[in-house]
Design a protein around this nucleic acid. Structure first.
Lengths: 336, 336
DNA sequence: CTGAAAGCGCTTACAG
DNA sequence: CTGAAAGCGCTTACAG
């Protein structure tokens, strides 16, 4: 089939006006008489005309495109964040270019290059870290960079990072306040900034208190890992009575292992805290006490900066991960 | 900050070649001498040059952009499908424009208009249905349309739809073979093509067998709905002993209600089948027998057609939803 | 308010 | 293999 594309010129011809008039009609705020506008709209509708944003993006300094760079997008937490981000972006009149990566920095670099190729107004990085030189190329092309839960910063970029360490510390205090004495940390081997932050905070607080939790770090950041860790932990002679899981998925796995394979009662015999507050954390089988990722707030912060004229971001902004009390921590942990 | 964008001309100047030579260097298959190519690459790297795909898209008949139009993208099944789709798309050298919609047809129309504005090579619709006239506009702009699990067809579009009715019928036979006598259907009020197909198949098979299942249809397609339905069903004097849930999320809700609120044993006292095979279906707390959505196959089919020169799609292709046997259906249901 | 003209960054016949 | 030139569809000063 031949591509029979209709251009502003076609609309102008049909409406009996100039190409410029057509352009102005579709540019909010441009000065066109009501009459001209009406003629143009009529012609455009009849022809099925849609402004070519590619051509527009060639001229204006904005394309309306924003790249979202992330790995494992079908993971509950990622999907939630992505949903919030795409929503906010659309409300701001932008559209999301979703670029999948694996966990390697190399694939992040490829993703960012694609973003540059399409001259996206910004790139939001949820996974991996772009090399410094490429970040500078982005800057040079006028792109804005938003780094979510990354540990480093890049010049001219906005970094949105939770206080992971603080959350890890809080997890420790809560478990101790709940009467737990034999603590454990359940995490994966992924070593992402978010995870290591939570781990570090938990361990540091324990050290300060003169305690040394059992650390189980294995596999990928998923349910299966939780299952493995739970099984391992319960096989020990000194079973822990308080576990901080760096992720809800891991927590769900630990919970299932502990309950179904060892008949341990939660929270009577074991208290457990997760992180993320994925949808399943609220499901009755888990009813997990966990830290809520402030995804809406993260998305808001990101899009707010993109929608602003301010060239220089504030540097780092830290939304708060709030502890959501549900049923996996024994009474006593919760303050009055 | 001024946008200091580097163009092919800049690279050409630095490399001492023509603009056309630069263009050819970045066009796979174009004829350039090794020497020229090397000079161009050197200059491009030094300048941080990236071909402007917007400008390229203006000239070529392809932009490399494909729109993914979907609602509720943070739902386990949707996220899974979206992940598969974006992956395949990238492997085929395309990049996904993710456009969020609510369930209304109007928002699908808006989404499709955005896709047209960016001259995407194709639009993959996972939610809602584009009006016929707009579908024709897409065709006119040379866009391809892929409709996933939609009930209608659009001219020139590819439709990928499971045999929902067949699955519904199979669910019925399996429950009956497992010895269930009082059947129920648990579904939402969403009324999407997938859901109504499953419902219709199940009910038709029951009718053929002279049975009349209890039908519980309420709320949105989510966990909470399952919880409500499970509670309602167990409050009846004639509790069902076999339930087909049109979605895994609903099934998980039903399971939790039934077990935790009524102490019903699954599958001893009640058999239950879901649909989708979301990650949680495999979690030990659920261990749900369910139909697996062939997401990889769906993504393959979609991308295969997009990557092809064939203008006319086959019409409808029907990947098979396979029943995954796990622990929520009593022995007897499963064939040897 | 309106139109003619220049220009955004590219690709692609067309000659050589 | 290579370059000069035309053109993709738009927007935006610039005059009027």
């Amino acid at each position: 089939m031949r591509r029979v594309t209709v251009s502003a010129q076609d609309v102008a011809d049909l409406a009996g006006v100039s190409r410029a008039a057509v352009s102005r009609t579709f540019t909010p705020g441009a000065s066109v008489s009501a009459e001209t506008r009406a003629k143009v709209h009529a012609a455009a509708d009849r022809l099925g005309y849609h402004v070519n944003h590619l051509a527009r993006g060639l001229i204006r300094s904005e394309t309306g495109l924003v790249a979202l760079i992330a790995s494992e997008i079908n993971t509950p937490y990622r999907a939630k964040l992505l949903a919030a981000l795409t929503m906010r972006l659309q409300e701001a009149g932008k559209v999301a270019l979703l670029i999948n990566t694996d966990r390697s920095d190399d694939s992040v670099e490829q993703a960012l290059r694609r973003a540059i190729s399409y001259r996206t107004d910004a790139a939001v990085v949820l996974s991996g870290m772009p090399p410094l030189s490429l970040a500078e190329t982005c800057l040079q092309y006028g792109m804005r960079l938003v780094l979510i839960n990354r540990d480093e910063l890049r010049p001219g970029s906005l970094r949105i990072s939770l206080d992971e360490q603080g959350a890890g510390r809080q997890a420790f205090s809560v478990l101790v306040a709940a009467g737990c004495r034999r603590l454990a940390l359940a995490t994966s081997k992924a070593g992402t900034p978010s995870l290591t932050g939570r781990e570090a905070g938990f361990l540091a607080a324990a050290r300060d208190a003169g305690l040394q939790p059992v650390v189980e770090a294995r596999g990928l950041t998923n349910y299966q890992t939780g299952l493995d860790i739970g099984t391992n932990l319960m096989t020990r002679t000194d079973r822990p009575d308080g576990i901080f899981c760096t992720t809800d998925q891991i927590a769900c796995g630990v919970l299932d292992a502990v309950r179904h394979r060892f008949n341990v009662e939660v929270p009577r015999q074991l208290s457990l805290i997760g992180f993320d507050d994925i949808a399943q954390a609220e499901w009755e089988s888990y009813n997990l006490t966990t830290f809520r990722q402030p995804v809406e707030e993260i998305a808001d912060e990101a899009v707010r900066w993109l929608a602003t004229d301010a060239q220089n971001p504030v540097g780092t902004v830290c939304p708060h991960a709030k502890l959501i009390w549900r049923g996996t921590v024994r009474q006593g942990g919760k303050p009055a």
